[in-house]
Structure formats: structure tokens, C-alpha cells
């Protein structure tokens, strides 16, 4: 049986749930066609989550690229097809990706599998991010270093906990759906690894409570800083991310397994905790840093 999974026209962290809801209705080894022909917009989360989805399929899925030439061109510039062509059977012609570093994307889709990859990501992002954060988001210069640190820690979660490679992408754009078109910088880090719950279980770090599920595991790790390692210095990465996001009035959301939690700023009306979602392996993290309010006329 072949199943067609429709990618929504606007693909972000929330609408990606419709992709997972469709997948959840079929067995893991079902032949899948991911139909993105009608997609016209995708956030970094959307693109990295699609690659992550491909990693989870027992049988290589087919992929129908966007029909809109601007969209497919952007996805190519974002480096999506460089990896999609390895993970999917991509149907039809897609533009050749430019070499990494020549794109207008802040950080193209980049694989993260080992510590050295994190060094490369941090090195590449700093100069580009500094200009965006200072000139577009009107943040103070110290926000730049914190941004690189946040990105580094987010990527390290893959290396340290996922058990398999993942993806990172960073982009800046006008956020029309919220914030009245203010600029935002978005970091997405997605992997199809073991996820927070299994990671904590493997380190015997499950909290002493009767309830134990993906939501409790996420809360333990993201909010309370529990790590699978007993080392008392562990857990500071996510704590640092939380601090950075809070300081710059940003938003953090983390999905793992069947749950998602979010630290929500005043400009957003997301819910802090979602449970009973369609199961998706690994961890998917998104950080949104908005343009400073006082700088907007």
C-alpha cells in the first residue's frame, strides 16, 4: 500500500503536526509519498523536520517537490535538496543547490552528527548572525555571543543524547502571522534519535514520580535541567538556552515522542504543554528570537 502524505502550504512547527497525524494512521513500513507540491512556505523547523521524517521511514519515501518556482528555489538555496536527494526518492527536477556559504540563508540545512560539526556551525553562524541581530533585530552586541552559545548547546543535544545524526538550520524573516511583520531569527534543530524520555531512562535519571511519559521527561530536562548524566555540571546547556530565550523575549519549543512543551513570550499565544500528539522519534527544538519591540516605530 502506498500512502500519500500532504504537506501543508505553510509548513512550520505547528502545521508539521498534520503531517505526523497523517503518518500515524499507517504502519511504519508503509510506502509513503510526501507530497509538497502545494507548499509555498517553510520555516527552518519545517525543512529539518521533513529530513528527520525521511530518516524514520523503514522504506525510502518518495518526495514531490513544491511546484511554485520561488518555493522550490528557496528550498534549494536552503540546502534542503542536498540531503533530501539522499533520504527521499525526489521526483522531478529540482534546482542544483549552490555551494554552502553562497546562500542568502543564515545557516543552510546542516547535518550534525559529531562534536566537530558543532564547531563548524558556530564558526559559520557568528559573522552572519551578528549583522542580522544588530541591524535587523536591533539587539545589543552581547546578544550575538549568546546566540552562538545557544546554537552550540542546541546542536550538542543531538551529539550527546540523540544517538544518531540530526539537522540544524537558521533563518531570519518577517514574521507576519505574529508580531505584525517584525523580524525574527529562528533556529531549528531536529533529530530522529532516542528522544528525551529514553535518554533519561538510559541514565537512570527518571524523576521519582508515579507518572512517567514524554511530557514529564521533557519537563524534567528542559525546565528542571535534569540530564541523563549524573555529573552535577550537566543540564546547563538547556538552562543557558532558556536564559537566553527569556532575556531576549524569545520563544522556545521542544517536541519529543508524543509531547511538546514551550516557553511562551507575551507576543505568542501558543500553549505551554501539548500531550497525546502523534508519535515522532527523537527531539525537535525551535528557538525564535524577535526584533526588539522598542526599536519598532
Amino acid at each position: 500500500m502506498t500512502v500519500v502524505i500532504a504537506v501543508p502550504s505553510s509548513l512550520d512547527d505547528l502545521t508539521f503536526e498534520s503531517v505526523l497525524d497523517q503518518l500515524a494512521q499507517h504502519p511504519a513500513d508503509a510506502k509513503v509519498i510526501v507530497d509538497a507540491r502545494h507548499a509555498t512556505f517553510a520555516t527552518p523547523y519545517g525543512l529539518t523536520a521533513l529530513l528527520t521524517l525521511a530518516q524514520t521511514r523503514a522504506e525510502k519515501a518518495e518526495f514531490l517537490p513544491p511546484e511554485n518556482p520561488d518555493t522550490v528555489s528557496y528550498w534549494a538555496r536552503a540546502g534542503f535538496f542536498r540531503y533530501a536527494e539522499e533520504l527521499f526518492d525526489v521526483r522531478g527536477h529540482v534546482p542544483r543547490p549552490r555551494s554552502a556559504g553562497e546562500s542568502d540563508v543564515l545557516l543552510e540545512v546542516t547535518p550534525v552528527t559529531k562534536s566537530d560539526d558543532v564547531h563548524g556551525v558556530v564558526e559559520r553562524i557568528q559573522e552572519r548572525a551578528a549583522s542580522i541581530l544588530l541591524n535587523k533585530l536591533h539587539l545589543e552586541s552581547r546578544a550575538t555571543m549568546g546566540f552562538a552559545m545557544t546554537l552550540s548547546e542546541a546542536c550538542q543535544n543531538i551529539v550527546e543524547h540523540a544517538g544518531r545524526g540530526g539537522w540544524v538550520m537558521v533563518q531570519a524573516y518577517n514574521y507576519r502571522r505574529r508580531l505584525g511583520g517584525r523580524f525574527v531569527v529562528v533556529i531549528a534543530v531536529c533529530d530522529a534519535g532516542v528522544g528525551f524520555r529514553s535518554s533519561l531512562e538510559s541514565g537512570q535519571r527518571r524523576p521519582l514520580s508515579d507518572r512517567w511519559d514524554d511530557a514529564v521527561a521533557l519537563e524534567a530536562a528542559v525546565v528542571n535541567g535534569v540530564s541523563r548524566y549524573g555529573d552535577p555540571g550537566r543540564g546547563q546547556g538547556l538552562k543557558g538556552i532558556r536564559g537566553y530565550v527569556h532575556r531576549w523575549e524569545g520563544k522556545l519549543s521542544v517536541r519529543s515522542g508524543t509531547a511538546r512543551i514551550a516557553l511562551i513570550p507575551s507576543w505568542d499565544d501558543d500553549v505551554p504543554r501539548r500531550e497525546g500528539l502523534a508519535f515522532f522519534p527523537g527531539a525537535q527544538l525551535q528557538i525564535t528570537i524577535p526584533e526588539k519591540v522598542s526599536a519598532v516605530a
Binding site: S115, H119, S152, Q156, V159
Partner: peptide, 11 residues
């Protein structure tokens, strides 16, 4: 490593 940034635990 040819980098000047101190990032990651193994490093």
C-alpha cells in the same frame, strides 16, 4: 581543531 571558539564538552 583550526577554530578559536571553545565549544562542546569533548573539546
Amino acid at each position: 581543531l583550526p577554530f578559536s571558539d571553545l565549544v562542546t564538552r569533548p573539546t
